[in-house]
Structure formats: C-alpha cells, structure tokens
C-alpha cells in the first residue's frame, strides 16, 4: 500500500572512477552515513484510499553489516483506525 525508505551509506566511486570505500584508495568525500552525537529526523507522509478503515504501520530499522548479512535492529508497529463518513 505504501513503502518508503531512507538509506545511510558510504558512497561508491567518484567522478574520476576511484573507489571511495576501498582500502587502498582515497575516502574523503561527502559522507552519507549517520554522524556521531547527532539525531536524524526523517518524516514520511502516507495517504491511503478513501475507503481504507484500518492500517498497520510498521517502521523498521535494518543494519546491513555487509551485502550478505542484515539485522533488523528495531521494528515498531502500530494499528490505525479511520472512520468512514
């Protein structure tokens, strides 16, 4: 019905084709990760159809430790009820 996501990550290659995450190349560049001592605020606006009476909203924080392994760190669910006029 509705899905959105925000990703925080190390970026890949720069415009000269040099990797920005490789061990033997240069890494300084725009940092898209979560910074220490900071709180990020993300807001998601979702609209449903006019005949929807009940919705389950789930917010999930997933941590990808590698391309192969991911962990669900937090998951928050809430049921919303809407009265139809």
């Amino acid at each position: 019905m509705f899905s959105d996501q925000k990703k925080y990550f190390e970026i890949g290659r720069d415009m000269a084709g040099r990797m920005r995450y490789g061990a033997w190349q240069i890494k300084e560049i725009v940092d898209l990760t979560l910074q220490p001592m900071e709180t990020k605020k993300e807001q998601f606006l979702m609209n449903f159809d006019t005949d929807v009476e009940e919705v389950e909203v789930e917010a999930v924080l997933t941590y990808f430790v590698s391309g192969k392994k991911k962990d669900v760190v937090y998951s928050v669910k809430e049921n919303l009820a809407f009265d139809i006029d």
Binding site: E38, T39, Q43, F44, V55, A59, L80
Partner: peptide, 16 residues
Amino acid sequence: EKQWVPSAVVTVFIEN
C-alpha cells in the same frame, strides 16, 4: 475525491 483521505505522518528519530 470528495472524501477526507485517511493519512498518517510517521516521524522517526534515529540517534547515533
């Protein structure tokens, strides 16, 4: 389109 639209705002605070 004449009906009020069921909606929600989800605000997430992620603290490092």
